[in-house]
Design a protein around this nucleic acid. Sequence first.
DNA 1: CATATAAACTAACAATTGTTAGTTTGGTAA
DNA 2: TTACCAAACTAACAATTGTTAGTTTATATG
Lengths: 194, 194
Amino acid sequence: MKSRYLKLETRKEEIIRVAAKLFKEKGYSAVTMRDLAGEMGIKAASLYNHINSKQDILDTIIISLAEEFTEGMRLIQSSKQNCIGKLKQIIQLHIRISSQNIYGMASLNNDWMHLKEKRSYYKKLRSDYEDDFRGILKDGIVSSEIVDLNPEVMMFSILTTLRSLYIWIPKKEDLNLEELSSALNQILIEGINK
Amino acid sequence: MKSRYLKLETRKEEIIRVAAKLFKEKGYSAVTMRDLAGEMGIKAASLYNHINSKQDILDTIIISLAEEFTEGMRLIQSSKQNCIGKLKQIIQLHIRISSQNIYGMASLNNDWMHLKEKRSYYKKLRSDYEDDFRGILKDGIVSSEIVDLNPEVMMFSILTTLRSLYIWIPKKEDLNLEELSSALNQILIEGINK
DNA sequence: CATATAAACTAACAATTGTTAGTTTGGTAA
DNA sequence: TTACCAAACTAACAATTGTTAGTTTATATG
């Protein structure tokens, strides 16, 4: 048996990574198994030695990311911080996950509707995440940490910005993640901070 | 000849409108001409009495919207206002166009990569738009109207929020556009306003 | 009535799709 | 050597794709 213990990435993981890159460029539906195989330097049929189906690749990409966000939010919720502190941690969370998985984030944002069995599970995770986010904002309003504006609009504004980081981070290699984090903290938070 | 003078919408326009709705739900690539025909209550081949190709539908949806944004920015630029005034008008512009064409905005955001001959033209329009936007922010920094933060991050934050309005507006029928406009003005502008 | 036209239809096409079956290759372990 | 196995291959499939050709239907105009 070929030893994988020293290897960083299995062949399967490599396929999923390359698939995510193609999905970002053209979207899940427009990427064919022959496109993916071509990018891997093999024939389409050979992919099936490693993966079960095209659908499976998408499921893996999206669900693993969604669960990562869920786990991140869980940790933030369980920490004893005020509203602003939690918001800053959410920004950090999005920057970290997005920068580590630029390609996958595109699928998470744009191709979740092509999930099948996993679709309702994904929607549950997303909905719970937004509920937590909204809760943090509402607490902040009650405790007068943030301005008393429609929490739905505040969440929408912050969250869509964070969800789009994957589009933007790769274009700005000169700006490091520390600077980005600092700038976003100011722009997104100070704005709603009393 | 059947009189169209009194009609609000030609059959072609109806097809394009329905197509945009389907494109929003599943993305351009995943929508088949049979899907579209089914939604119109006719057979796929019948669509071709009205439209030239599937590609043509996408081109029409995206380019007309992109040109609408370009024209809007042109008017804002030619008006004699300060930075903040222009930013508020940009917010208005996005709310107006997005609310009038919820479905088309999805294609503009997610399916532009499936343009063919029109792709470079689209990218030119978008790039020019962003240059104008950036210019307004830079002027605002020089004139001390807005805080001296990375204009790229500021533009990214505001613009991604505005570009995602189409996702969000239809879910919030209780919130009228006046309220939305007012809330966004506060959240997006006051935040960067000194 | 005769004609024209908008707008639907049926039938079919060539290409492309995801996937399967069965086979070959090359390296590793016994 | 021998056996094994991961990972590639060729060939093919049934279904689906966008689109074309030719025809029918219904309505409106002269």
